[in-house]
Amino acid sequence: MIQVQDIRKAYNKVQALDGISFEVGKGELFGIIGPDGAGKSTLFRILTTLLLPDSGTALVDGLDVVKDYKKIRNRIGYMPGRFSLYQDLTVEENLNFFASLFGTTVEANYDLIKDIFIMLEPFRKRRAGALSGGMKQKLALSCALIHAPKVLFLDEPTTGVDPVSRKEFWEMLAKLKEKGITILVSTPYMDEASLCDRVGLMQDGRIFTIDTPQAITRSFPKDLWEISGEHVYKLLKVLEKFSFTHAVHAFGEVVHLSLPKGGAGSLEIMEYLLENGCGQAEIKRIDAGIEDCFMEYMNEYA
């Protein structure tokens, strides 16, 4: 459904996209995971025909984003990262306006937006600017869906939205996927990666790896330990000097320590911590998450 081949784009001297290639199959929920500034929005804007790439080709539903942009616009739905609906128009007016621009009506495609629209129903006469973040996001999704697109582009749809709304939103995406809509979604939240069929990890205009979230975490090449103690910062400093350490990162209240496979066992780690005044720390062998993998790839490419 989406084929991207070596797309490059530079703003002045900053290389925003540095040779991006990937493919998304029909009905797939594909996630682009990466921190702010990775180039996600630039990629989305190229695929939604808003921006011209410097080089490379991209096809959406078999149509070239540069040459066939007019045809593409009828077939895609785009939800920009920034709320881009009319704040001074009501929920209903926004929906009707975008429906009519696509030459359709809300009723004609009601089936598709029904699940979302039911949640918006109580606020139909409210101005979009007066909606909560979660409701704004639902309205934006409805507007992007109003013309029954084949491909949906969602640029950081859950940024700045509360955890409950985020969960609801991903449930909605799963339902849309069941209806056969191909979805490309970007997010800076690593925990959302596991909700995608496949993900691409992106940083500095490049994609490190593309695979299912399970395969990515399974292929983590190191032993990973979670260490918790009173002073995370001290733990971090101490473990950085540990001779086996491959990498160590703070994860909120705990520290993730990665060691070469079979490099050191729990005894050696405990012993080292004891020697360095961190005797009360608890250690636990864990499986890697997407974030661990992301850090690992970043290390590798740096």
């Binding site: 939604t48 025909t49 808003l50 007019k70 616009r73 009828n74 895609i76 785009y78 920009p80 920034r82 709320f83 881009s84 609906l85 009319y86 704040q87 975008f98 621009l101 696509f102 030459g103 507007c143």
Partner: peptide, 13 residues
């Protein structure tokens, strides 16, 4: 300025 042009530009208008 308010970004609504993004949403308009992806329509076939």
């Amino acid at each position: 300025e308010i970004g609504t042009i993004e949403q308009l530009n992806v329509t076939p208008i």
